[in-house]
Structure formats: C-alpha cells, structure tokens
Design a protein around this nucleic acid. Structure first.
Lengths: 158, 158
DNA sequence: TTAAATCCTACTAATCCGATGGGATAAAAG
DNA sequence: CTTTTATCCCATCGGATTAGTAGGATTTAA
C-alpha cells in the first residue's frame, strides 16, 4: 500500500503537471522557463486540502530526489525539472516509500541479501521477482503526464 | 513489501507443500488422507529456523483463513486443506498482510472509499488499478505449487 | 497419567507513520 | 532597510503497526 506521503505527493504533482503543461502551451517556445512560474505550497493546499507542514516535507523530498526544483522568497515555489513525460511514477514512489519490490532480495534499487535463505534455491525469490517486474512494467511506463489526464475529455460536448 | 509474517508463512508452506506432494505420490490414490500426515510446528522450525511462538500465530492465521487444517494432541500438526495448485499466493498474502492493491479505493477485497478525492476524476485511481491488475495477474496465477519447485531440477546430471 | 501438540488471550518492545513546531535563510516589494 | 512571503532544516511527538513473547487451557496418543 502507498503511504499517505506518496498519495499526497501524487496529488501535489498533478497540479504541478497541469501548470507545467499550461505554461508549455502558452509560452509556445521556451520563452517562459519553468522556474519563472513556480507554484507555492499555499497554492497547492488550496486545491488539495492537506497539512501544509506535511506537504512541505514531501516537496522537499521530491526536490532532493531530483524531480522538483524550487525558488525561494516571495513569489517562490516549486516546479517540475523535466517534462512530465520523463518522470515515471516508479521514481516518485521510490523517493517517498522506498522499494517497490515485495522483498529486499529482489529489489533493484534497494537490494539487500536475505538471511536464512539461499537465493538460488528459494522458490519465493523467483516468484516475487515476477511480481516486481509486473509492477515495474506499469510504474516505469506510466509517468506524471498520466496523472493529469482528464477522464472527462471528449464527453463534454458529445 | 511483504511482512515478516508473510515471508515466514511462505517458508512454512513450502515444506507443507513438499510433504503434501510426497504423500500424494506415495499414497497413489486417496488412501492416505492429508490429516493422517500432519506436520508439527517443531518440525517446520527445524527446517526453517524462526521463532516457534511467532510461527504458531502465523499457522493459526492460515488455518482461520481456510488454507490449513490441523490436528491437536500428540502426533498432531498442520496440513494443506486443498491441492497446492488450488491456493494462489494472493490468498496467503491477503490473510497475513491484507490488501494487495496500492490504494484502498482500488482494492477488491478490502475496498474503502477515499476521502478528498472524486474517484471518477482522480487520475491516480486509474493508474493504481492498473498496478493492482498487474500484481494479481501474477499472484492469482501462481500457487503454492510454484513455491516448492526445485530450480535445480534438470541440472543435476547435465 | 504423562507427554506432545494445538489453541487462545494478552502483553511488550521497537519501529514506523503522520503530523507538528520553531526557527534559519532567501528573495521580492515597498 | 524593513516587511512579507516563501523555502529550508531539524527536532519532536503521539498513535499505530510490527515482530515477538508469556502463560496457560485444551486435546489426543501412548
């Protein structure tokens, strides 16, 4: 199960994505940099009600994780460092919740040898590696862009 | 990540499966009932070193969950209620760790409505439902039998 | 009657999670 | 240069969960 941290992160990111795509649409070229249009924590909380302080720690994590940039001081806030297409959901989850694999001994980014268990013989490893791969097939393919898709699109006028 | 409980459960189950398959091979027909050849906690711990008391609570859970039967008193122990092929890994995980889905609002067996989030509009639901399905594709297909497969088979003589 | 097993309830120690508080630092605006 | 509005950083805290323990009741075979 995703932690609250990860859930809040996705909510916050969804608004950052919308802002980012909007900026790209408006500023035709790269005339408007992402750092010129940062979104503050206060603004995000207005859209997605949650603890301001808690969100702060989350956005800091995402910044340290290389997903967000920030601008301090008045008019400051956070912004995406890359195109939403280029940040898979897996990256967000790893930053906030750690390993995606069901066992440390099949984790790609957080591998730990398992005690009392010969990996070559252990039947569980193989199976859990399958589960990990099934997960990653989705989580590495789907990106922040997919978060912001409006499922009502195409229905409005029809 | 799987809890220790689930990990221990799988280890214990792997020996119960081996015993069960052995019994089926020996007793040709159904001349030997599973309840005639129960395996005690003590025996399991000999194979897989772990806290006896902790394993006790785990096997009790598996019994209440409908996977194991038990026989009390001297010579007693635990045994599989069904053919190993007929217990998917998903069932074991649900008993010991609860939901498999990454969010309560996309869980099949432990569904809970999510607050502050319109499911029809929320982009995350759709994506996490995809993750859930990817997981279940493996965990409902793979069974206890897969736990006991010897990966060295076919290599010994070659 | 004894020994060996499951069964049951409660408890505990440690860890993790969600959240909060207080302040340092930076930048823009007047 | 001061105020305001932000991010940044660190420490703490209550509650929940996890992993494991304790002790005894119950059942059955020998």
């Amino acid at each position: 199960m995703l932690s609250k941290k990860a859930q809040y992160a996705f909510r916050a990111l969804s608004t950052l994505v919308r802002t980012d795509l909007q900026r790209r649409a408006d500023g035709a070229d790269a005339t408007v940099a992402a750092s010129d249009a940062p979104t503050s924590i206060t603004e995000i909380v207005k859209v997605h009600p949650m603890s301001t302080k808690f969100l702060e720690t989350i956005l800091l994590d995402l910044k340290r994780g290389g997903i967000l940039g920030s601008k301090k001081g008045k008019g400051g806030g956070y912004y995406l460092l890359k195109h939403p297409d280029d940040t898979p959901l897996a990256q967000v989850i790893r930053i906030l919740d750690g390993p995606i694999a069901p066992l440390p001994c099949v984790s790609l980014h957080f591998y730990e040898r398992c005690q009392d268990c010969n990996e070559a013989v252990c039947g569980l490893n193989r199976l859990m590696a399958e589960v990990r791969d099934a997960n990653l097939a989705v989580l590495e393919k789907r990106t922040l862009s997919d978060l912001a898709v409006d499922p009502g699109a195409g229905l409005a006028g029809a």
